[in-house]
């Protein structure tokens, strides 16, 4: 564990002792040598329970418990109602069905493609726009708002709108006089999805990058300018390296988003044709083959597999990318 994090956990303790000394150490209630540590202890525990209790309870109820329940159902051929018993216990069959299903691996592959393309397409574009928007210029706030608007619109609304516009007989083809199967042609559909995703989430990336840029002290670029660095040199050698932690956090969020992608695909392509169109994702596969097929046991197994896959990806990123130098952005690197 890094020094910062251990210091952070130690901090409240120190503060707590101080406050108790200063208040409790008065004349009103002369605390005995034995009582004081115990009271402190009790009070600290009470504070932890009161402050963290509700969150932990909610986390247990709505995250941990469903995972355990899903694990339980994943061993049954369960249709969503009726008992689970020896008759419908199927052991690892649901897992076998999923892991030997080429459509599932197709969906995993699509998630991978979306993950990589999101990083490649949105990252550089977002950084570029953020660097420009970080300059003082006219209409800056308006541009910022406009760029952020798609991110605010609900996915379902974006999905329905895009679905209507991009149909074969839809507005886009009519407008361009083309006849492209934007949604139905498997060679095109993934790019359509990527375009929509980029349009929708670019604003979020830009806002994040802008926030990161604004945390960088102006003195640095001013000093560089005084030393004769050009605009692009300043961006490349000063701003970008200092923006690295933000980029990494955005990358993490983007990867998680790509792994979980469901709503846009489901709204635009529906329950059946995402596989045929080549845009199925793991979460879509789970919904289509779980609840919508009336096989909640199988759906649970898919959910567990997706959970593990996502966890592994998240942990790898956390361990190898995010953790390495989140500190050292504005201060000098100490170890690395």
């Amino acid at each position: 564990m890094s020094e910062t994090s251990s210091a952070a956990t130690a901090a409240p303790e120190v503060e707590l002792d101080w406050s108790i000394e200063s208040e409790g150490g008065s004349v009103v209630l002369p605390p005995s040598a034995y009582v004081r540590p115990r009271r402190n202890h009790v009070r600290r525990n009470l504070e932890i329970i009161i402050l963290a209790g509700p969150a932990i309870l909610l986390f247990l109820m709505f995250v941990i418990a469903p995972v355990i329940v899903a694990l339980y159902y994943s061993f049954y051929k369960w249709k969503g109602f009726g008992p689970t018993n020896a008759d419908n216990f199927v052991g690892l069959d649901n897992y076998k069905w999923t892991l030997t299903n080429p459509e599932f691996w197709g969906a995993v592959g699509h998630n991978g493609i979306i993950m990589v393309l999101s990083l490649v397409m949105q990252g550089p574009l977002a950084i570029l726009v953020a660097l420009l928007l970080n300059q003082k210029m006219r209409g800056r706030s308006l541009i910022r708002v406009l760029i952020f608007v798609p991110y605010v619109i609900s996915e379902a609304i974006v999905g329905i709108g895009m679905f209507l516009m991009l149909q074969d007989e839809g507005a886009l083809n009519k407008l361009l006089g083309l006849h492209v199967g934007w949604l139905s042609n498997p060679k095109v559909a993934m790019w359509t999805l990527m375009f929509i995703l980029t349009w929708k989430y670019l604003g979020f990336a830009i806002i994040l990058m802008l926030a990161g840029l604004q945390g960088i002290p102006e003195e640095l670029s001013e000093a560089a300018a005084v030393d004769g660095a050009t605009f692009w040199q300043i961006q490349w050698h000063i701003m970008l390296p200092l923006l690295k932690p933000t980029i990494k956090v955005w990358g993490f969020l983007s990867i998680i988003g790509a792994m979980q992608l469901f709503d846009l695909v489901y709204v635009i392509w529906g329950q059946y044709i995402a596989t045929t169109a080549g845009v199925s994702t793991m979460a879509w596969f789970m919904a289509a083959n779980g609840r919508l097929s009336g096989q909640l046991g199988r759906g649970s197994a898919i959910a567990i597999i997706v959970f593990i896959l996502s966890l592994v990806v998240a942990m790898i990123y956390q361990r190898w990318v995010l953790n390495r130098d989140t500190e050292g952005a504005l201060t000098e690197k100490e170890e690395d």
Partner: peptide, 15 residues
């Protein structure tokens, strides 16, 4: 079939 029948919904809306 109508062009784009694969992405045509059954009952929702004029399209």
């Amino acid at each position: 079939f109508n062009s784009g029948f694969l992405t045509t919904a059954a009952q929702q809306g004029a399209g």
